[in-house]
């Protein structure tokens, strides 16, 4: 099974803008999506000021919200799984 790496920036700038909330929101992700994810905390993604930032499968997303991170993850995993349509 292919694994998607999810890096959540925990730098102080992103922390102030709510990166912790992004973590918490992952609790509400369906289990069959979570299985695909390898979640790591990273100290900086180099886009300070546009946070909170994440990197999913090598692509950086800025201005993330708990709502959007779930959408992005689902979209990318659906692509991985193939067959099924994206959002």
């Amino acid at each position: 099974m292919a694994i998607l790496k999810l890096e959540i920036c925990s730098g102080t700038s992103c922390h102030l803008m709510g990166s912790f909330d992004l973590y918490r929101s992952l609790d509400f992700l369906p289990r069959d999506y979570k299985e695909y994810l390898e979640i790591v905390k990273v100290p900086c993604l180099g886009k300070c000021g546009e946070g909170p930032n994440i990197r999913l499968g090598g692509k950086t997303y800025t201005y993330m919200t708990p709502e959007e991170i779930k959408l992005v993850i689902k979209r990318e995993i659906d692509k991985l799984r193939g067959g099924k349509d994206g959002c």
Binding site: G11, T12, H15, P43, C48
Partner: peptide, 17 residues
């Protein structure tokens, strides 16, 4: 604490590093 963190960000101090 909110203001303290803003002070750090403004001085480009990244506590995680």
């Amino acid at each position: 604490f909110e203001e303290l963190t803003a002070l750090l960000v403004a001085k480009d101090i990244n506590v995680s590093e």
